[in-house]
Design a protein around this nucleic acid. Structure first.
Lengths: 161, 161
DNA sequence: TATTGTTATACTCTATAACTATA
DNA sequence: TATAGTTATAGAGTATAACAATA
């Protein structure tokens, strides 16, 4: 009832999923869905290491890479790539624009859609992040041999369709 | 400015991550992290199919299975298994208790911790869900052969540590 | 009529922090 | 002092809905 002090919030700490010894995981150990989740969390930690200090989350990274590789892409298409609603792509684009990473340019043919483009700053950031994220992704997956890594990628893509 | 009507919210629709044809995915195609994310979303759709009509999310499913297989487990341990904070395990347990799926029982030795147990209802639900979720998990992964599925599980577990 | 972007709003999930009771 | 549970609060992320401009 007495007023509490505001809680400072540090959001980007997805805790690793601990494997509790002695616990029975039952059917979970047979589910691809569960194994995927655990592996994804583990690899998120790699991403987090690579982007430490930046405010770049996985969806933001994906968005920047895709805009960089596909200049002029519309917000709606970007939303489809990320699997989020138009309004979310909008919020995301606002966030990039406020930080001068992406800019909206009117499209000649279509007065409705914007074309998204990296700024010079944005291109620079993407170039650096692509290197560090890829390197960290490989480092985290170093428990796998090169052939295993390739095979895992193949199987995941086959599964994702 | 004019007041808007409240938006009814149907949360559990993680959209599939569309593979936009003709788009350049650049470095994303070489990242395990990205491939894992796409595969995980695909498999979440299997989970969603299996639990349609129930209000059971993946963390809730995991929690119920683990409580079922480890009767008397504490809320804190459950939180560790799920990778969430104590307060989250608390909210989760409240949710289960309100629906008579799980009950808290005092532990004889320790006056602080609760022991969690499935109710008869809860045990029934878990029994059914284990079957349907496992079946749907296999159906979704049917693009993979049996050997590929085993290999994928092995690689994922190796990666997750 | 359909699509793009926009604004307003709502809800889930989960974090931090401070507190109480017990060990 | 340390741990389990609890309560209060905050914030990120993303959904739906309604709207305007354009096609």
């Amino acid at each position: 009832m007495t007023p509490k002090r505001p809680a400072p919030y540090r959001p980007r700490t997805l805790a690793p999923i601990e494997r509790v010894t002695g616990l029975d995981y039952d059917v979970l150990d047979d589910l691809l869905g569960y194994a995927l989740r655990r592996a994804q969390v583990a690899m998120f930690l790699a991403f987090d290491t690579a982007t430490r200090g930046l405010e770049i989350t996985p969806p933001r990274f994906t968005a920047l890479v895709v805009v960089g590789a596909n200049p002029g892409i519309s917000q709606s298409t970007l939303g489809n790539v990320l699997g989020i609603a138009r309004s979310g792509a909008m919020t995301l684009t606002d966030w990039f624009e406020a930080r001068r990473l992406v800019e909206r340019r009117r499209r000649p043919g279509d007065g409705r859609a914007w074309g998204l483009h990296l700024t010079a700053n944005g291109a620079d950031l993407v170039r650096k992040m692509k290197r560090t994220v890829a390197a960290e992704d490989r480092r985290r997956a170093a428990v796998l041999g090169a052939a295993e890594r390739r095979e895992l990628l193949r199987l995941l893509n086959k599964l994702a369709g």
